[in-house]
């Protein structure tokens, strides 16, 4: 644990801008390496900025990623505790940077729809989809895979992420064809990666920057049950 003292932090700065200022200061002093942290889009889409701030994934604000968190959320003189997302399945690479490729492997295990690309592919817009299902699927698809669910869960469970990916496809006609194998494969990969078990605390739903609902977890549970029981 290392403590840095910051001054002249504008309340309008984003948290990452504050980190940039900190790193500029460290670099100009030339005594040590800057603090490594992940970032990319800085507009709440990429899900790279994985920081556990004052005991919460992405900090004290709701429905935002760390890059959308502003310094006005803290008081002058506060000590802010910043940690990397911690889970065995997310090994720390350096400082605040973690390896979340476990999520990529879960996606590769079934988070896709196989289509015929021979030129006879049916136009997706020509397939009727009930509005309610389309909305639910879209809501699930807004998951950016940031890992806040894993970081917040006391068991380091990835069920919210996996359930969002399962639901996203299971609700659409194109995804139903492979739904049985998808859920079985993705859950198996999740277990192989060493994530913990879900105990329905609901912390993941609260801390998710995209508001992914626990209803997706129930949907995945039901999908998995029916897929396991199906001959």
């Amino acid at each position: 644990m290392k403590t840095y003292k910051m001054s002249n932090v504008s309340p309008d700065m984003s948290f990452l801008e504050m980190m940039d200022v900190l790193n500029s200061k460290i670099i100009s002093e030339g005594k040590e390496d800057p603090v490594a942290f992940d970032h990319d889009c800085r507009e709440g889409i990429c899900g790279m900025c994985s920081m556990f701030i004052n005991g919460q994934a992405h900090g004290p604000d709701r429905l935002v990623t760390t890059c959308q968190l502003h310094m006005r959320k803290f008081k002058d003189g506060d000590t802010i505790v910043v940690e990397p997302f911690r889970a065995n399945a997310f090994p720390v690479i350096k400082d605040l940077v973690v390896d979340r490729s476990a999520f990529d492997r879960i996606q590769q295990a079934g988070g896709f729809i196989s289509i015929n690309t021979s030129g006879n592919t049916q136009d997706a817009n020509s397939i009727p989809i009930e509005k309610d299902d389309a909305d639910k699927s879209f809501d699930a698809a807004t998951c950016i895979g940031c890992g806040a669910c894993v970081a917040s869960c006391k068991n380091a469970s990835a069920m919210l992420f996996v359930s969002a990916k399962v639901s996203q496809y299971a609700l659409l006609p194109q995804g139903k064809v492979e739904s049985k194998q998808r859920v079985l494969n993705m859950v198996k990969q999740m277990d192989d990666e060493g994530f913990g078990n879900c105990t329905n605390t609901g912390a993941c739903e609260v801390e998710c920057p995209k508001g992914i609902s626990l209803k997706n977890v129930a949907r995945m549970n039901s999908e998995y049950l029916s897929s396991t029981l199906k001959p």
Partner: peptide, 11 residues
């Protein structure tokens, strides 16, 4: 974690 604020997101 060094600091976890569990009460902020779960019972």
């Amino acid at each position: 974690y060094y600091y976890v604020k569990g009460s902020s997101n779960s019972s």
